[in-house]
Design a protein around this nucleic acid. Sequence first.
DNA 1: CGTGTAGTTTCCACTTCGGTTAAATAACTG
DNA 2: CAGTTATTTAACCGAAGTGGAAACTACACG
Lengths: 127, 127
Amino acid sequence: MTKTLDHDRLNDDRLDETFAALANPTRRAILARLAQGEANVNELAAPFDLTLPAISKHIKVLEQARLVRRTAHAQYRRCSLDAAQLEAVASWVDQYRPVWEARLDRLDDYVGQLPPKRQQKKGTRHG
Amino acid sequence: MTKTLDHDRLNDDRLDETFAALANPTRRAILARLAQGEANVNELAAPFDLTLPAISKHIKVLEQARLVRRTAHAQYRRCSLDAAQLEAVASWVDQYRPVWEARLDRLDDYVGQLPPKRQQKKGTRHG
DNA sequence: CGTGTAGTTTCCACTTCGGTTAAATAACTG
DNA sequence: CAGTTATTTAACCGAAGTGGAAACTACACG
C-alpha cells in the first residue's frame, strides 16, 4: 500500500459527497436554517431567490451526502439535520488540529497586536 | 457597515472555495501528506496515478482555497499546509456541535424513549 | 549556448453542477 | 371526481470541474 494516511479511507466516499454538498452557499444556508429546527421544502425555499425545483435538488444533494434527512408527512417533506455526518466532518478536520494549534502557539507570543478575533489564552500580556 | 450577518459570513466566499477544494479525494490526500511535512510537486504527485499537470492543478485549487501555500525555491515549489483556513473549516463545523451533541444526548435518552424536550434519568414519559 | 529537471499553462474532451420551465406525482379537500 | 397544495422528475442549457497531451517557462549545470 502506497498510502500513508488510511484511517479515514472508509469515510472517503462519503466525505467526497459531503464536502461537495457543503461547497455551496445555498446549501450551507439550508443547513443553518435547519439548525434552528425542522422545516419542510417550501419553508426552506422561502428565503431564496430560487425556484422550488432548484431547492429540491439542493436538499437532495444534502440528503445524499447524509447531511439532511427527509421524512414524509402527508404531502409535506419534513427536513432535519443529520448530526452524524456533521460530526464526521468535524472529526475529519480535527485531524489537522495540531497544525493550527502549533501555529497559534507560535502566534501566542505577539498575540497582543492581533485583531480581536479569538484570544482565549490565559495570560494575554499586552506588549 | 452593511453586514448584519453572523461571524462566519465574511468567510463564506472562502468557505465556498474551501469546501469545493476538499470535495476531492486526491486533494484531501495531498493535504494529508502535507500534514506530515512540506513537499514539492513531484513528491506530492508520486503516490497518484495522475499526470503531473493534473496534480499541479489540484495544488492550484488548494492554494486558491488558501489551504496550501507554495513558495519557490529555485525550480522547486515547496508546498505546505495553511493552518488558518483549516481552522476556519473547524470553526464553521463547530457551530453545529450542539446538534450532534444533542443527538448523543437523545441517543442516551432513547433508552427511556422520551421526547427530545428534557431528559431525566428516570423513564418519565409525559406523552 | 544547449540539455536536463521541475513545474505550469493551453487546449481539448468529457462529465457534473446549478439553474430554468414544464409536466408529473402525491395527498388532502370539497 | 375535479381542484388545490406540496414536491419531485424530466428535459434542457450554460458554466465549471477533472483529466490528458503537448507546449511552454524557469532554473541549474556543464
